[in-house]
Each structure stands twice: as structure tokens, then as C-alpha cells.
Design a protein around this nucleic acid. Structure first.
Length: 575
DNA sequence: GCCGTTTTCGGCCCGACTGTTTTCAGTCG
């Protein structure tokens, strides 16, 4: 029974309780529990063994008991008790926009509907309209929602959403009645998966703004249209919420709709202690309304240091902000160079020269080429003679460049037995070696951890590439004992990659803070296969910020000289 | 179900929009 399963079970329990119409605060307790467990940095099993679990706020007697039962027996009697009379298909049904647990349960009670397919059929048969609380319109909306759900499953990569959102903001900026406008929501916070786009704007004439918004060419469907809030679906399938407020309310709305919900809730609790009420329109004290012009002032009024959007997940940022002790987050300009770039030698699109020129023009001081190794036949991995050829070409290019340097590396497969893909006498040719797993992905946590730990013992191992192998919205990645990996990384001075490919973003930001606390260096790598991918690095910076990383934690914020020295010292130790 | 210098009961963040009602429940963020 791993952490992920426990989170799923608690989340499901909350939903089943909701469907049953149970006390909403009980529902929230389970939802909170799931979120708290998700944010835990320490191993859940160890927390239970040491008894620390009882000290975590939000996990009380019952939840602790449930966690222990799940860990020791692998199951939970209460879970089966709760879901006994409720068909699991209702969990799918409540994913339809506008159809929540109350209505779903009523459909089940009155029409015997148990899943999405039955609901769709009932709509087509025009049977919904006879149920109390449902009419023509809701039946139509539900049908539309089912279509939507089947088509997209409602989740998008950050990169897809940010491109759409930026386009809308740029178009709205030139709308006649717009004063201020910004992307908000999970997109502003840099979440890797986005459910919808939130945009906040200010105007004296909201109706005109809403009209402008709904008539944009990329709008496919208007879900709801009001004076302060309008929701639409884009042709790409992404939902967009636009909130329009008065200019003096803008900062409050921006903060509110940036979230996260958990951050906002915690902040309101804090404010309440000082008799300040917060909502999306302002701060309200006993008799006055407070004027605020910037988010810096917003936090300062509450006695807090400015909290960057990426940190607003209620994972300790408010406490740190009170102590004036937030991390000074890494920025794009801190990045000096990039590693993990593929060239034509393996499965990349561009020549070494073109990649170097592009990197140089983007302002990077160095470029670390790392093509695939020989076992990666599907990716045209390098044979030994090609390695020598590539080495020579890089040396020649380096003679031409001033103020720029190409490091010769390799992305070596970590083979199933934990060895690297070339003998040591070949590995020593490279300036750096990224070890990555590309095959045999179905391993137990023990096997996967052992495999990587063994590879890390190789003296030429420099960086661990995409540590968990996850593909966002694709596959979850193998389970790893990251504590052991970080420990080994620290011992062996091995760098952990934050792979900035938008489909990977691996290592997950939730683990970065932990790595940082163990003084493990992180390299933000684009994993580029064409020169246009080089700046994916900046998406990685966003995620690094979300993981509380500072300049000092990021390997590729180092200067060219510092990197050269580091690799040189690794080589000496390796011999 | 969780929590506590309002402490073992009685609260628990707050507001907009829709579709159905005939004054509001449900949903969403």
C-alpha cells in the first residue's frame, strides 16, 4: 500500500460521503487528509512508525487509524462500508461540469443511473426532465458535458494552457474598456497539469469586456455569462474563466483567483485573527475598507513578506513569510547554460553547430550535448566510433567560440542490472554523463531504487536524468525511494535533473524542497531535440521556483569556469 | 472528521452563476 493509493482512497471516500449527503465538514476532513499526505516530504510509513503522524495538523484520530490500517493490512474496512451502496460510476458522472454529488445521487435514486453511459442514454431518451431539479437546459448541458469529458478528460499540459491563456490576455489587453489584466489560477502558480484557465481583469464597463471576450474567434461555447464572471470553452477544449472587477478591487481579485484554495483559506484564517475579513473584493475591518495597489502591499498589510505565486500552495509559505524567511527563488536570468541536449548524432534534429549558435544567441554561456547511448537503438544511440567523431567535432567547434563552450556528454541508459551503457574507458572521454532509465519501466520500488543506486556508484556518473520516468497525463513513473537517491547523490556529488520537457517536468516540484534540504544540486535541463526546445529550460525554472529552489541550489546557474572545475574534480576522483 | 488563550462542544472561508424554482439549492472555484 503506497502513498498514492492512500491518497486515492481518501479522495474517493470524500466523494462517496458527498454523494451520500454526509456532513460537508467530514467530507472536507478526508479531502484535506489526502492533500496533506500528498504534500508530505517524509516517508508515510516512517511517520507512522515513529508516531509523528499524530502531530500533523489535519490528521486526527480517525484518519491516523485509517492510515495505519491501510499500511498494515493493505485495505480499509471503512472504505468498503462507505462505498457499499454507491455505484462507482457516479464518480465519473460528477466530473460533468455543473453536475455535482447531490444531483448525481438524485439521478441515481430516481432513474437508477449508475454510470456515464446510462446517463447519456437517459438524456437522449429525454428522461432527465422528469426529475425534480432538472429541466430541458440541464439535460442539454449534461449531454454536452459528456461529449467534452469523453473528448479531453479535462486535463491539459501547462504548456498548452499557457499558450492559449497568453493569447487571450494579449487580445483582451487591446479591448477598449480593460484597465488591468493578468493570468491567475493554477497556471499563474505554475502547476504542471491545468484543468482550466483563470483570467482576472479590471474595468468600469464589465459588460463590454465580457462581450469582447465571448466573441473571440477561439471561443467554442459559452458556459455562463455574467457581469463579474464568464466561463467559456475554447476550440482546443480548455475552459476559461474570466473575472472582471472594479480597478480598486483588482489586486484582491488577482490574489483570490490565483489561489490556491488552500493558501487562501489559511490566509483568511490568519486575517480573521486580526479581525480582517478577506474576500475577492477587498480587506474589510470593523468599519473601513483598505486600499491596496500591489500584491506586495497586500501581503505586507497582513504582516507578510511577498509570496510569489508559485509558492502559494499552503505548504509552509505563510509561516516563512511571517518570519521574513522565504527563499529567494531562482530566476531565468540566473541560468548560465544548459545540459541534456540531443543532436543529429542520435535522435535530435539539428547539427552541433546549429545548436551551439542557437544556445549562444539565447544568451547561454555553455551547452552540454548528451546524445543517446548505444542500447537506445530506437533513438539511434551512439556507437563507440561515433563518440570519437563527435568528440573531435566538439573540440574543433570550441576552438572557434569565444565566451562560449560546448561540453561533451552522453545520456547513457541505465541498464536493467544498474550498469551504464559503455565501459569505463569510454565513459571517461566525456565531460559529463547523464544516467537515465528508458527501458524496463515496470519495476518494484526496491528494484528501481537498487538499479539507480548501483548506477550512481559508477565514478563517471554525473547527473540522474528524468529521475522517475513519468510522462504527464501518460504514465505515472516508477516508484522510487527518493530519500536513498538523494542521500547517494549527496555522497557522490551527483546532480539530479529537473527535466524541463513539458511532458515530463521530472523531478516533480513536490520533491525538490526535500532535495534542496539535503543539499543536493539540481540541474534544470531542457532535454531538447531541436534548437527551438532549448528555452524549455525556463519552464523548468518555473517548476524549480515552485519547488522552493534558489540560485545556489541550481547547478546550471554556475559560471562556465565553475562548471569546468566541477567536472575536472569529478574526473580526478573518478580515476 | 478536526480542532482548541472563545478548548471537549460547536464551529468549520466566501461569493457568483445557473436552472430551477416561486425564493433557492446546487455547483464551482
Amino acid at each position: 500500500m503506497d502513498k498514492r493509493m492512500i491518497i486515492t482512497i481518501f479522495t474517493e471516500m470524500a466523494t462517496y460521503l458527498e454523494l451520500k449527503g454526509e456532513n460537508q465538514f467530514k467530507v472536507r476532513a478526508y479531502q484535506n487528509g489526502a492533500r496533506i499526505i500528498d504534500n508530505l516530504e517524509k516517508d508515510l510509513r516512517k511517520l507512522v512508525e515513529s508516531g509523528e503522524i499524530t502531530k500533523i495538523p489535519g490528521i486526527g484520530k480517525t484518519l491516523t487509524g485509517n492510515i495505519i490500517e491501510l499500511i498494515t493490512t493493505g485495505d480499509l474496512a471503512e472504505y468498503h462500508e462507505i462505498k457499499k451502496d454507491i455505484p462507482s460510476g457516479l464518480l465519473e458522472i460528477i466530473k460533468i461540469p455543473g453536475l455535482g454529488p447531490k444531483k448525481a445521487y438524485r439521478l441515481h435514486q430516481s432513474l437508477g443511473i449508475e454510470n456515464l453511459a446510462e446517463l447519456e442514454y437517459a438524456c437522449l431518451e429525454n428522461r432527465l426532465t422528469v426529475v425534480k431539479g432538472f429541466g430541458e437546459k440541464s439535460q442539454k448541458n449534461i449531454l454536452q458535458g459528456i461529449e467534452q469529458l469523453k473528448k479531453h478528460r479535462g486535463k491539459f499540459h501547462y504548456i498548452e494552457a499557457i499558450v492559449e491563456a497568453q493569447k487571450i490576455v494579449d487580445e483582451l489587453k487591446i479591448a477598449p474598456d480593460i484597465k488591468q489584466i493578468s493570468i491567475a489560477g493554477s497556471l499563474r502558480r505554475g502547476k504542471e497539469i491545468i484543468k482550466d484557465i483563470d483570467i482576472v481583469a479590471s474595468s468600469d464597463n464589465p459588460t463590454s469586456v465580457m462581450d469582447y471576450f465571448t466573441s473571440l474567434p477561439q471561443v467554442d461555447n459559452i458556459i455562463a455569462k455574467g457581469v463579474t464572471k464568464t466561463s467559456i470553452t475554447l476550440k482546443s477544449g480548455i475552459n476559461v474563466d474570466l473575472r472582471v472587477v472594479k480597478d480598486e478591487e483588482y489586486i484582491f481579485a488577482l490574489h483570490h483567483f490565483t489561489g490556491s484554495k488552500e493558501h487562501n483559506t489559511a490566509l483568511r484564517h490568519l486575517a480573521k485573527k486580526s479581525d480582517i475579513k478577506i474576500n475577492e473584493y477587498g480587506f474589510f475591518t470593523a468599519e473601513t475598507k483598505v486600499e491596496i495597489k500591489t500584491e506586495e502591499e497586500f501581503f505586507s498589510y497582513l504582516g507578510l513578506e511577498y509570496i510569489p505565486p508559485e509558492l502559494r500552495e499552503n505548504t509552509g509559505e505563510i509561516e516563512k513569510a511571517r518570519e521574513d524567511n522565504l527563499p529567494k527563488l531562482v530566476t531565468n536570468t540566473d541560468i548560465q547554460g544548459i545540459f541534456h541536449v540531443h543532436s543529429k548524432y542520435s535522435d535530435g534534429n539539428d547539427s552541433l553547430y546549429d545548436l551551439a549558435e542557437a544556445a549562444k544567441n539565447s544568451g547561454y554561456k555553455y551547452l552540454g550535448i548528451s546524445d543517446h547511448s548505444q542500447t537506445a537503438v530506437y533513438a539511434n544511440g551512439l556507437k563507440v566510433d561515433e563518440i570519437y567523431k563527435q568528440h573531435e567535432e566538439i573540440q574543433k567547434l570550441n576552438e572557434k567560440f569565444t565566451d562560449f563552450f560546448i561540453f561533451h556528454g552522453i545520456e547513457s541508459d541505465i541498464l536493467p542490472d544498474g550498469s551504464l551503457d559503455y565501459p569505463d574507458e569510454i565513459l571517461r572521454i566525456f565531460d559529463f554523463v547523464i544516467g537515465s532509465i528508458h527501458s524496463g519501466l515496470n519495476m518494484t520500488q526496491e528494484k528501481a531504487t537498487e538499479r539507480i543506486l548501483k548506477a550512481m556508484d559508477n565514478p563517471y556518473f554525473t547527473m540522474l536524468g528524468h529521475p522517475t520516468g513519468r510522462i504527464l497525463l501518460g504514465r505515472p513513473g516508477y516508484e522510487l525511494d527518493l530519500e536513498k537517491i538523494f542521500q547517494k547523490a549527496k555522497e557522490k556529488k551527483i546532480i539530479i535533473e529537473l527535466n524541463a520537457n513539458p511532458h515530463r517536468l521530472d523531478l516533480d516540484w513536490r520533491h525538490l524542497k526535500n532535495a534542496k534540504s539535503k543539499n543536493v544540486l539540481i540541474s534544470i535541463n531542457p532535454d531538447a531535440h531541436r534548437k527551438e526546445d532549448l528555452d524549455q529550460t525556463y519552464l523548468g525554472v518555473k517548476v524549480a521556483r515552485k519547488g522552493w529552489l534558489e540560485k545556489k541550489d541550481v547547478f546550471n546557474s554556475w559560471s562556465l569556469d565553475e562548471i569546468k572545475k566541477y567536472f575536472a574534480s569529478k574526473k580526478i576522483n573518478g580515476h
